[in-house]
Write a protein that binds this DNA or RNA. Sequence first.
DNA 1: CGCTGCTGTGTTACCGGTAACATCGCGACC
DNA 2: GGTCGCGATGTTACCGGTAACACAGCAGCG
Lengths: 342, 342
Amino acid sequence: MVTRGEAPSLREVATRAGVSHQTVSRVINGGAKVSEATLRRVRAAIDELGYRPNSLARALAHGRSQRIGVLVGNSDQHGPVSTMQGLERAARHHGYAPTTYSFRTPDELSAGVDFMLGQRVDGLAVITPHDAALAALDGADLPEATLLVGAGPRAASRLHRPSIQIDQSGGARVAVEHLIGLGHRRIAHLAGPEDWYDGHERRRQWAQTLTAAGLDATAVIEGDWRPDSGHAAAGKVLDAGVSAVFVANDQMALGLVHGLAEHGRSVPGDISIVGFDDLPESAHFLPPLTTVHQDFAALGEDAVRLLLGEDGGLDEGAPTDAERLRPWLVERESTRRLTAAD
Amino acid sequence: MVTRGEAPSLREVATRAGVSHQTVSRVINGGAKVSEATLRRVRAAIDELGYRPNSLARALAHGRSQRIGVLVGNSDQHGPVSTMQGLERAARHHGYAPTTYSFRTPDELSAGVDFMLGQRVDGLAVITPHDAALAALDGADLPEATLLVGAGPRAASRLHRPSIQIDQSGGARVAVEHLIGLGHRRIAHLAGPEDWYDGHERRRQWAQTLTAAGLDATAVIEGDWRPDSGHAAAGKVLDAGVSAVFVANDQMALGLVHGLAEHGRSVPGDISIVGFDDLPESAHFLPPLTTVHQDFAALGEDAVRLLLGEDGGLDEGAPTDAERLRPWLVERESTRRLTAAD
DNA sequence: CGCTGCTGTGTTACCGGTAACATCGCGACC
DNA sequence: GGTCGCGATGTTACCGGTAACACAGCAGCG
């Protein structure tokens, strides 16, 4: 059973079992009518030779590769990585092997599409909320079965492909409403880049929620998602004279807390903070961060379902399970209620 | 150039250009002798049809898939993920397409090996420092060209495959020596699980460095890498009556700082802490964490070089560039010098 | 001027599977 | 008892490339 060197082929198994190669094929694929005796002989030959079907040949022969391509951008961030992993597991669960390709620049994304086309993947998921990256897809001839993950409906309609994403604006709303509910009236936003779908949506909904509550929505500081930019924003946050900040992700929230500490301000004593993402670390920040949790595993699951359809094809009509992809607030200790004394 | 539906094959291009399919093959592979005129005609046909070589067919035909498999365990941790990404980029740079498969249990690892065998990958990298996972490989028939990444020499020799890893013990040594140099005499270790190669090595070297300095090396608390376990260890750390702790990774260090804060202790005021990994967030922890930085991109690079060899085969003789894979200390603010007053 | 050798191109077989159809043996039915 | 029908198996072609070899045309050479 242990074989070194060249892998045995189906015909070698056939010879050894004294049957035709087609019969072996029937055995490994099951279902077809094979007599009990032949079945045993073939199985024995397979074991003795350590035979393993060549999935490349199989893919070539019946035209479907049983593989999906996953292009993922900015794979140093929690969101994309988690989505990718959720998607990978879900794909495998459906009998598809994911091939991933991570890109950093629009050019690399184009190269990734080319690569996937060459690989003849049965479906393609593009995970990125970054408009500039998505722009690289404008001219490209995407596979029919392409799904945009986290890119937002605008990019989706431009590229004529479906998209799926966690409800960013719902997440932003619960975050801001939480702060309002605690009595905060002056609430800043430390935003992600405007040309990221999630950055854009969180900012938009922050403004809208404040406006709906009759509050001022002008204190916006734009960061780049990284902790350093949160750290650098501390001065501006103080200048804005707010009592609370809705930060577009946990990494920047961490940097901001750090920066505020350097200015002698404490969280939540002087300023309340709500983040977004709920990193594994966020529960142990000082103070533990109140944040918005997103279920990336569910996103990956739904993405695969949407991409493959129940019958293996891309089914545009299938509505995503919106309830399931709604993020929720995780209350910890970085926010406090404003009292009469404030 | 934009094509929908079935992708054109090499023979269709040939027909359109009025040449044989072999000539088209020569054009796309370059190198061979093709006249200027035919070259142009074929190129034109390729463009018009939007032809793209089918990499599956190619792999099948000349027996090498130009792909390497990457099996990665515990892909929720910084280390494995970073290694994987470094490896992915390096592989692509060498003209190989990585197929990744993340596993959580030993069984999934076995399934992953099977899968990769079926995919006929030219090389296989197994990224995990976890002994229990590696044990699943004992009976498996690994491809000849298999490289263990981060598994340590013991597992490597047991499986008769080369391994590569960052110098864990060197990293632990600089961390502990840093604390000793600051005047600390009672230094605990918040360890990773003993059946992880890196956990084991860091612990071993912590003990050895202390012993070499004539200090006591008995205060060990074992965690599970996650922040929660660091948080839970705070009480035990205090009971140990130490002035410093070498923590086996940054996540647990974060949890520990949090736990100590709940006990009214500050870092580095009461206790100095050194972590390991240098997460993107660690510079903004409160206090910013002194830690050991590992260069995972370089590890991935070297891994691919080792796996592919300069000539494409696995070259066991090639020594890894030890200098390059030595981690280094990043001094920040979680440690302080003990003074006469202490 | 015929042979040699090189250049450019075509032909055929093959990689390892699957699909479609052909064939064979045997029990059931009229 | 001959024919039908079906289950079990074999044969052949094909997927889309690459490899090895064949072959035509032409320049260089003795």
